[in-house]
């Protein structure tokens, strides 16, 4: 699946600025000219202190917000002039989201939550959709909890459901906003290991926002933001102090 897309990088940002309250006295620029390229299958962390613009950048990458200036190519396609519906469709087809607070829909069971992206794409719960959702939930170790509502699951389990949901339609890029920020160390390790495993097995690229230097060290690439600019972008410092195999 990931072999054919060598032509264009998944993400290509050039000179991206983001200003809030544009034209108002309290106008503030949060991102000052970001250039960033993420290739297919990469596993990158996005780190930086609070207020450095991580979430803003993630929203731009996730097509939830539009840059004030600069260009964003998603799989080589310019997104600047796309309509809301086109951007929505691109989110469904290309992107997966994992949020800090899991954000499962409480009205649906764990299995149905994982089936939701398929429901959006196909307009119905199809048997194929159900089969692949079961497979994903089994892969995250939740075979026994498929029919449970999110409220009946622990935080770590909910986050694993959310990870399965993000991967439901085999996205090219998963954006994870502090996916382990709300979990205890053990659950956090488990969830992170899952992300790495899906990256390896399914070849989809990850951008993981994290505060945890331990987790950042376990990524392939670290992008560090400071005051709205990329301060550092490169492979993880040394292979010795961050052993590549999980744990």
């Amino acid at each position: 699946m990931n072999t054919a897309r060598t032509a264009a990088p998944i993400v290509s940002l050039s000179g991206v600025h983001k200003r809030f309250n544009e034209g108002l006295p309290n106008e503030t620029e949060v991102l000052h000219g970001i250039d960033l390229t993420v290739e297919a299958g990469e596993f990158a962390s996005l780190i930086g202190p609070s207020g450095s613009g991580k979430s803003t950048l993630l929203n731009l990458l996730g097509l939830l917000d539009r840059p004030s200036a600069g260009e964003y190519l998603l799989k080589g396609v310019p997104t600047g002039t796309a309509s809301d519906d086109e951007r929505t469709q691109a989110r469904l087809d290309t992107l997966g989201f994992v949020f800090q607070f899991h954000h499962l829909l409480p009205e649906f069971s764990a299995l149905e939550n994982v089936m939701l992206p398929g429901l959006m794409r196909d307009g119905a719960f199809t048997p194929a959709n159900r089969a692949s959702a079961r497979e994903l939930l089994a892969a995250v170790g939740l075979s026994d909890a498929m029919e449970k509502r999110p409220g009946e699951l622990s935080g770590g389990m909910q986050q694993r459901v959310a990870i399965a949901r993000a991967l439901a339609l085999a996205p090219d890029l998963v954006l994870a906003d502090e996916p382990t920020g709300n979990l205890d160390t053990h659950s956090a390790d488990e969830a992170f290991a899952l992300l790495r495993r899906f990256n390896r097995e399914r070849g989809c690229a990850f951008i993981v926002v994290t505060h945890d230097p331990r987790l950042a060290a376990r990524c392939d690439r670290v992008i560090e933001l400071r005051d709205g600019m990329i301060e550092r972008d490169g492979p993880v410092a040394s292979a010795t102090d961050a052993p590549d195999p999980k744990r």
Binding site: G62, L64, D84, D85, T88, Q89, R91, L92, D93, L95, F97, F99, H103, L105, P106, E107, L116, P117, M120, R121, R165
Partner: peptide
């Protein structure tokens, strides 16, 4: 509101 936000982020159009 939050659920609507998730649905939108996951790829649910405004019309839907």
């Amino acid at each position: 509101t939050r659920e609507i936000g998730i649905l939108r982020a996951m790829g649910t159009s405004r019309g839907r």
